[in-house]
Design a protein around this nucleic acid. Structure first.
Length: 825
RNA sequence: GGGGAAGUGGCGGAACGGCAGACGCAGCCGCCUCAAAAGCGGCCGAGGCAACUCGUGUGGGUUCGAGUCCCACCUUCCCUACCA
């Protein structure tokens, strides 16, 4: 009787052996072609569930498959260890963020090992360790030197709950991405990274990212939001001031009937000098009514509103005087914060003009129409210019060029490009992050910390209350001496956005112990780019955009070579539900790794996660579903275990002799799996669900054969081949069987079974016979049957003859080894 | 308002433009058993006694042939939302 499959012991044993033997180490000197597969760096939140397991299982199946295909696979793991939850634990439970984080890392590392993943742990990193964040500071200083890191006052997103500023990318529907509270606008002096300087490259290089999901490329495109237009100045009547506007429709410039500016626009201060005190006060009140509102409330005010300043601007081309309005629909941070109001040709301006009874001047006519009646709605299409001075009669397209040239000649503007995205706000008023390496000196001003003084260590034992910036209150940290003059100085108390760390960690894995540089260029040349990146679609903009920006900067600095995109191919895994519901602690429906490993075994868990849906789809964890995979592994065990001794004599590398069609089918089933496994990684489709379905078919065939001819070479061949086929998906049982088959080294160091055409060939095909596209017969035939013979066979069939009777054959379609279609009239 | 993706049995899903529903889950029947569990074998889209007919959200189109390609619509999900 077959010994039962003791997954608990087997899984533990093999995990220990893999660790001991270091079989997943990626050596820098290995001559084989490299393959860098990476899963997004996890945040060490504490406990893993099967949703996390899906991500790592996909990556691990890819890593193991590529290893068995002969690649030198780099598959590292580490921890995105700075961030708010650690501080929240400190606030709520008085735990030191560092110890909280490190104990979470220890637990998650144990759980990730428990999943049987093939990581090279010698390259592990944690971003909260000084050996890592020192290089954050170093990279920040290089950005600073290039003018790509700068501090300025700007209206920024402020989360009142987390007591910190947020990047635009971290504001989701007007709410904080972390705590979901409504975000406010505040004018604060903050550190920014000049990501907009890379706008054009970030946009155009998306074209080359063929291995990225279309959707993600599109989201980045939309987020970057490049638009070409014209920027030019309106003079303020009666004051020495001008107001720059940006427009994509400079062809409508003769239709300007007002100027709309954001309440925060700096020109407001100047205007106050030429308008009455009463109006000034009213503008302030209006601006204040907006400022006190959260971003969420403000953007949900669909009604356009505004306030006439009492001042006028002069249209540089028509010389008309137009009123200047402060409005709620012009964004201070986009373009110039001022818009030329053309109600006839812009929907928003039209709404605004209607509400405030401003004139509507039509200057574009639809081709072939005359203008008579007043517009019912804004006409936003291109057309022919009317009432536009010298430009009347021109097409919109031509006029845009001509007018831009004119403005340029006048020295007041010209063509320009605007991006929708803004510079990346990277400073945070929080404790648990990388200190920004800047010192403020009364004599020397803003002074970058010299490299030799890095790292600026994050002090321990800082009280964390949730009120204000903890570092700002820590005198021992703040007070320092100026690196330039040696006088008393203060340190920057802000820390970096944690996305800073995660924008370059994939390079640190290449050279994790380097204490002279964040990584050596030779290592980068050896391993970059990341061949396959795997992670959630929620990072489609944030992390992936920042990483692309950093990598382009690194490329410009000469620290990396080749293509200036870090991630060659990208795969987003789908999430995991439990019985159709999202897993969450509050619902109490989280399926944990530890309990699953104990109850079902991790091989079963891995198989289920890969099998239940294609990996990019949402999958539903069910107790019945996982039982199915447990059953499968038991079937594998029963099919192999009693026959291992005999199977030792049969090489899995040589096709066995076959005596019956069943035996031939069994050998074929082996090669069907082998082919599917290779196809799924070669195509980067990673639909291992189809490969595992074919494994099921193989094991079903073996179960049948075990009853009839368990001693046949074909059967024993299947027994010996099965561990090689299972290895990427169920690595423990695979190695156990492999070792019991008499092998001294791990199955994971073996090559795949190359699919063999002879083994894949079938003895007989089913020829499908269609008449006018409808199936009328299925006839068994020889593979490779000649066209004429196929039709002879088809037309000899009684059923087919009945369909053909009395009709003329018009056309014969032949699909070799598959189908004939006889078209009759 | 704008953009994108997807609709296949009771369920998850298979299917280079060529036999729709592989494989699994659930269910049903049988064998084994004193019995149950496990295991093993079989059935499992709809209608029809049958030959056969119908069937991949709806309606068109391309094609010898469409779940697959094109157009329109419906539904669902996702992203984005005054970006001048």
């Amino acid at each position: 009787m077959a010994e039962t499959y003791d997954f608990a012991t087997i899984e533990r044993t093999w995990q220990e052996r893999w660790e001991r033997d270091g079989i997943y180490r990626a050596l820098d000197t290995d001559p084989r072609p490299k393959y860098y597969v990476l899963e997004m760096l996890p945040y060490p939140s504490g406990d893993l569930h099967v949703g996390h397991a899906k991500n790592y299982t996909i990556g691990d199946a890819v890593a193991r498959s590529m290893r068995m295909l002969g690649y030198n696979v780099l598959h590292p793991m580490g921890w995105d260890a700075f961030g708010l939850p650690a501080e929240n634990a400190a606030i709520q439970r008085g735990i030191d963020p560092a110890s909280w984080t490190r104990s979470n890392i220890a637990n998650m590392q144990r759980q990730i090992r428990l999943m049987g993943t093939s990581y090279d742990w010698t390259r592990e990193i944690a971003t909260c360790e000084p050996e890592y964040y020192r290089w954050n500071q170093w990279i920040f200083l290089r950005l600073y030197e290039k003018g790509l890191a700068y501090k300025r006052e700007a209206p920024v997103n402020w989360c009142p709950h987390d007591q910190t500023v947020l990047a635009n990318e971290q504001v989701i529907d007007g709410r904080c991405w972390r705590c979901n509270n409504a975000v406010e606008r505040r004018n604060l002096s903050q550190w920014f990274l000049k990501i907009t300087a890379y706008g054009d490259r970030l946009l155009s290089d998306l074209d080359g990212l063929d291995g990225w999901p279309e959707r993600t490329q599109l989201m980045q495109r939309n987020w970057i939001g490049r638009s070409e237009g014209t920027q030019f100045a309106f003079a303020v009547d009666g004051a020495d001031a001008k107001i720059d506007v940006f427009t994509t429709r400079v062809d409508t410039v003769y239709g300007v009937t007002f100027l709309a500016i954001a309440p925060e626009h700096p020109v407001v201060a100047t205007l106050k000098g030429i308008i009455s005190a009463k109006q000034s006060a009213a503008i302030d009140a209006f601006a204040e009514s907006l400022r006190s509102k959260s971003e969420l409330e403000r953007t949900s005010l669909l009604e356009k509103d505004g306030f006439f300043t009492g001042a006028y601007a002069v249209n540089p081309l028509s010389h008309e005087r137009v009123p200047i309005w402060v409005t709620n629909y012009v964004l201070a941070e986009y373009g110039t914060g001022a818009v030329m109001g053309v109600p006839a040709h812009d929907e928003r301006d039209f709404d605004f003009a209607k509400k405030h009874a401003l004139p509507i001047a039509q200057v574009i006519a639809a081709p072939g129409t005359e203008v008579d009646a007043p517009l019912e709605a804004a006409f936003v299409e291109d057309g022919r210019l009317i009432a536009s001075g010298d430009y009347s009669g021109m097409s919109s397209e031509r006029a845009r060029g001509a007018i831009a040239e004119r403005l340029s000649a006048m020295g007041i503007g010209g063509k320009t490009v605007n991006f929708r995205f803004r510079d990346w706000l990277v400073s945070r008023q929080r404790y648990w992050g990388t200190p920004i390496p800047i010192v403020y000196c009364d004599a020397c001003g803003e002074v970058p910390v010299p490299d030799a003084q890095l790292p600026i260590l994050l002090p321990a034992d800082v009280p964390i209350t949730g009120e204000g910036s903890p570092l700002a209150r820590d005198a021992a940290f703040i007070n320092t001496t100026c690196p330039t003059c040696g006088g008393a100085a203060r340190r920057e108390s802000d820390t970096m956005d944690t996305f800073f760390e995660s924008s370059w960690y994939y390079l640190r894995y290449l050279d994790p112990k380097n204490d002279a540089l964040p990584w050596s260029p030779e290592r980068a040349k050896r391993w970059m780019n990341v061949d396959q990146y795997i992670g959630g679609a929620e990072h489609a903009v944030l992390h992936l955009l920042y990483s692309r920006f950093f990598y382009k900067f690194f490329r410009d600095m000469g620290w990396v070579e080749g293509r200036d995109e870090p991630f060659e191919r990208l795969f987003h895994q789908g999430m995991v539900l439990y019985n159709g519901e999202k897993m969450s602690k509050s619902r109490g429906n989280v399926v944990g790794i530890d309990e699953t490993a104990q109850k079902n075994g991790v091989d079963a868990m891995r198989l289920f996660l890969l099998y239940v849906t294609p990996p990019e789809d949402t999958s539903d964890w069910t107790d019945e579903g996982i039982s199915g995979r447990v059953r499968f592994l038991n079937r594998v065990w029963r099919a192999c275990e009693p026959h291992l001794e005999k199977a030792k004599r049969i090489s899995p590398r040589e096709l066995p002799p076959t005596e019956s069609s069943d035996e031939k089918a069994l050998v074929r089933a082996v090669h069907v799996v082998a082919k599917s496994a290779i196809d799924e990684v070669a195509s980067r489709r990673f639909h291992f669900n189809t490969t595992i379905a074919k494994l099921d078919e193989l094991v079903n065939a073996m179960t049948g054969a075990a009853q009839k001819s368990p001693d046949s070479p074909a059967y024993l061949y299947a027994v010996h081949a099965l561990p090689l086929l299972l290895a990427p998906y169920a690595p423990h049982i695979a190695d156990e069987l492999w070792s019991r088959l008499g092998h001294a080294t791990s199955v994971h160091l073996e090559r795949v079974i190359e699919p063999d055409d002879a083994a894949l060939a079938v003895d007989e095909i089913t020829l499908v016979v269609q008449v006018n596209g409808k199936i009328r017969a299925r006839i068994a035939a020889q593979p490779g049957i000649a066209e004429a013979a196929a039709f002879a066979l088809a037309e000899g069939d009684a059923n087919v003859q009945a369909q053909l009777a009395g009709k003329e054959i018009r056309k014969r379609i032949y699909v070799p080894d598959k189908l004939v279609n006889i078209v009759v009239g």
